[in-house]
């Protein structure tokens, strides 16, 4: 006798993960090569500031919004922060995820408790809902939104929701929900390199370029 939920879980942990990983890692590398091999011409104008250092600095400093801007797009800013921090915490501080990272890279750190993980997850999903809502209602967001954006929102929300359901046994067989959780993560991984999710990697390049262009001129970034 087989347990379909268990078989699905094993598929998700085995071939499913392998397929997703290959597309995820291969895709990211592909995209990064695709971008960086294009190259940029050496800037012949004598530099006034250190573009390299400011580029590096901007990778981090751009995480802080410009003064006074938050009030003009509160949903995007606050929702964006809650989502990003929440997703980060839920991913990197939930013990089973740390176990995965430990297995893959041999590094680990203390896990956060259930109360933290679950409230963060709930907040993160709420933030996603708010961001989705603003894509429907806010004129700027609405005019910019494409299918890709909704897909990305959905793909980001599903692992959070299914993870929450699996851990709390809200409904369904827990083994099945765990399998479904892994499958949603795998869907996210597969979509990652070829959708706007890729920004989670390419933002480093973009911020660096931005900072280095400005920095060479001695301008702020």
């Amino acid at each position: 006798m087989n347990n379909p939920a268990f078989d699905l879980l094993m598929w998700a942990r085995g071939p499913g993960f392998d397929i997703a990983l290959v597309i995820f890692v291969g895709g990211i590398v592909l995209r990064l090569f695709e971008i960086s091999i294009l190259g940029r011409k050496r800037d012949l104008a004598p530099a006034k500031g250190n573009g390299f250092l400011q580029g590096l600095k901007t990778i981090f400093s751009r995480s802080v919004p410009r003064e006074g801007l938050v009030k003009f797009a509160p949903v995007t800013y606050i929702g964006g922060y809650v989502f990003h921090i929440g997703f980060f915490v839920a991913f990197f501080f939930f013990a089973p995820h740390i176990a995965l990272i430990d297995d893959a890279f041999g590094i680990s750190w203390p896990a956060a408790g259930r109360v933290i993980i679950e409230s963060v997850t709930a907040l993160t999903v709420l933030a996603l809902l708010a961001l989705t809502y603003s894509r429907f209602t806010d004129p700027v967001r609405k005019s910019l939104t494409t299918f890709d954006d909704y897909l990305v929102l959905l793909l980001s929300a599903l692992p959070l929701i299914t993870g929450y359901v699996a851990v709390n046994k809200l409904f369904g067989d827990p083994t099945m929900m765990l399998a479904v959780h892994l499958l949603t993560v795998e869907a996210l991984m597969i979509a990652f390199p070829f959708t706007k999710l890729m920004h989670a990697v390419s933002f480093v390049l973009s911020r660096y370029y931005n900072g280095s262009i400005q920095g060479r001129k001695g301008a702020e970034s």
Binding site: D18, L21, V22, P96, D103
Partner: peptide, 16 residues
């Protein structure tokens, strides 16, 4: 651990 993939994914990752 249950959350860890069961296959030889590291090799796959390198190949990818």
């Amino acid at each position: 651990p249950l959350s860890v993939p069961s296959g030889d994914y590291r090799k796959m990752g390198l190949a990818a």
